[in-house]
């Protein structure tokens, strides 16, 4: 009983602290000084270095989607729906979520480990001692990088997925030519299938950046704390991304009813 109460208390404390942390991050996002150089470095780390992973994953996912949907669509004689199934699959929601999970795994873990390491070796204190706002320098820049990188990476993943599906469709027996595939993939899509799902990854980026930074920035307990912050960053940010997607899907449906 005591442990359960303990869990509940620590859960709400975590939620509260994370909320305060997030609101501080959000506020500082718009306050000078803007750490442009460090932000560029972080976009390089979070965004550019993720490009090969994201492009390859998207491509592979498109191929898998094509093969899977083709085998089931064939039973209904609806092979012509395959491009649409792939493009809708990639663009509407899954692409955004997959990108976010991949980024949570690659970047979130990195941020969590790096900041926790800096915390336990007093590098964050050192920054402060050198009259640098460590929160802005470390946290805001990383969150900004995630917020900027995620929509771009999602776009990349979506298109490489459709591309992967196209190449798979061109090779597979009974597949379709690229031109027809391209048309069928995009003809049934509207902006409301495309823009909101990419824009919502801004929220996912904020979540990944904030959660990872929070867990790293507030890490304690030396070397074990570093490992824990890294693992928790992945777990919590992935979980929160998926949970927030539940809400965002509903909200997007509310704003773009179709």
């Amino acid at each position: 009983m005591k442990t359960i109460i303990g869990w509940v208390v620590s859960f709400f404390r975590f939620a509260g602290e994370l909320g305060v942390f997030a609101s501080r991050a959000f506020r500082d996002l718009f306050r000078r000084p803007f750490e442009i150089g460090e932000t560029v470095d972080q976009i390089f780390e979070a965004g550019l270095r993720s490009v090969p992973l994201i492009a390859l994953s998207g491509f592979a996912f498109g191929v898998v989607l094509s093969l899977q949907t083709r085998s089931s669509m064939e039973q209904f004689g609806a092979e012509s729906m395959v491009p649409q199934a792939i493009s809708f699959g990639m663009f509407k929601d899954i692409g955004a979520v997959i990108t976010s999970l991949l980024v949570a795994g690659r970047v979130g873990a990195g941020i969590g480990a790096q900041l926790a390491g800096m915390r336990v070796t007093e590098q964050i204190d050192a920054l402060e001692a050198l009259a640098v706002d460590s929160f802005k320098y470390l946290v805001v820049t990383r969150i900004t990088a995630c917020v900027i990188a995620l929509p771009l990476l999602t776009t990349l993943l979506d298109f490489s997925g459709v591309m992967g599906g196209m190449i798979s469709e061109m090779i597979v027996p009974g597949g379709m030519p690229a031109e027809l595939y391209w048309r069928d993939a995009f003809a049934p899509m509207g902006w409301s299938d495309y823009v909101p799902s990419i824009l919502k990854t801004v929220v996912f980026g904020f979540i990944i950046g904030t959660v990872s930074c929070y867990l790293g920035y507030t890490a304690t307990q030396g070397a074990t704390g570093v490992g824990r912050a890294s693992t928790r960053s992945v777990v919590y940010s992935s979980l929160l991304v998926i949970l927030s997607d539940v809400i965002l899907v509903k909200l997007i449906f509310f704003w773009f009813p179709e």
Partner: peptide, 24 residues
């Protein structure tokens, strides 16, 4: 305030126990 604090800190040097060099 934060910016004034920064001004004072610029006049203070701090050598940490394990030096706390930025390892990146």
């Amino acid at each position: 305030a934060r910016d004034k604090l920064g001004e004072v800190r610029k006049k203070i040097g701090f050598l940490f126990q394990d030096a706390a060099l930025f390892d990146s």
